[in-house]
Simulated assay, not measured.
Amino acid sequence: MTIAPDDAQQGSTHRYRAMRDFVQSMDDTLPGKFEVTKEGIVHDMMAPVGPHELTTLHLRKRLERVMPDDNVAHTGEPDVEDEPEGIMRRPDVMVIALTDMAVPGSFDPRTLIAAIEVVSRSNPDNDWVGKMRDYPLMGIPVYAVFDPRTGTGAVLTDIHATPDGPRYATRKDFVYGEDVTIADWTISTANLPLYPDV
């Protein structure tokens, strides 16, 4: 859910820094994940265990089996930050070179090879709408989305200019069970968990 006003994107660097400071102060104090988006602050109430985390683990391990040793599928901190755009995100999996991780503070989004998100059951629009808008603005060349609600996903590439700003031009949808290519590496999506019916 967005917990800051929509006009946050019109605000100054001061407003962005205040939102960033708030988000960083919330780490480890409330469940879920806080991020600064073009619309304001988003709070994603992720479950701490279960299909979301298991999917993230499978994707990390499958990618690291096929990537060269100088690249990693990183999960966790730090955030990816584009201060001029007023965006701070934390992808579920960040494909990045080891050398690009050796920086103080947040990662530069333009050093990411790919960002991967596992759709949250509590806030799917954050992954399917907000991040689909924010990641090309940040210059992340590949965005892969895995949706345990439906057993489907998409890989988005080829950033291009539009009247609404940079957007991904190419979208390749997939169904769990198919092989999927993320950047230069192809992995299986077989046996990825689904969210249980409620």
Rank of each mutant, 00 (worst) to 15 (best):
D27Q: 15
I96Q: 11
M138A: 12
G32M: 05
A4F: 10
L137Y: 06
G105W: 12
D127P: 10
Q24R: 15
P84A: 07
R121F: 07
V42A: 15
L112C: 11
V72G: 00
M101P: 06
D158Y: 01
I182P: 11
M46A: 07
T181C: 08
P48K: 09
T152W: 01
P78Y: 06
L54G: 00
E35T: 05
D70W: 05
A190E: 14
I113S: 09
H14W: 14
P51T: 08
G139N: 06
H14E: 15
A115F: 04
V119F: 02
V155A: 03
D44G: 04
G40V: 05
M26F: 07
P84R: 07
D7T: 11
D158H: 07
L30A: 10
D100Y: 06
V180Q: 05
L112W: 09
P136V: 01
R20D: 13
P48Y: 01
P163M: 04
R90N: 13
D28Q: 06
L112R: 01
D79G: 12
R89W: 12
F22D: 03
V93Y: 09
P109H: 09
K33W: 04
M1T: 14
Y16D: 07
V103F: 06
D100R: 05
A18T: 12
R90Y: 04
D100I: 03
L63K: 08
G177A: 07
T111C: 08
D125Y: 14
R62C: 00
W185T: 05
L59Q: 05
N123V: 02
D69M: 08
F107H: 15
D28E: 13
Q24T: 02
I140F: 12
P84V: 03
M132G: 06
V95M: 13
K61V: 01
E178M: 02
E81Y: 02
T29G: 09
M1F: 11
Y195E: 05
V155Y: 01
D82H: 14
P51L: 05
G130H: 14
V145Y: 00
M94F: 00
S122I: 02
I3P: 12
M88K: 12
F22R: 04
R20N: 12
N191L: 08
L194Q: 07
A161R: 13
L112G: 12
G86D: 10
G177N: 10
V80K: 04
W185K: 04
I182G: 04
M88F: 01
T189V: 02
H14G: 15
Q10G: 00
M46Y: 11
L54C: 02
Q9K: 09
A97L: 11
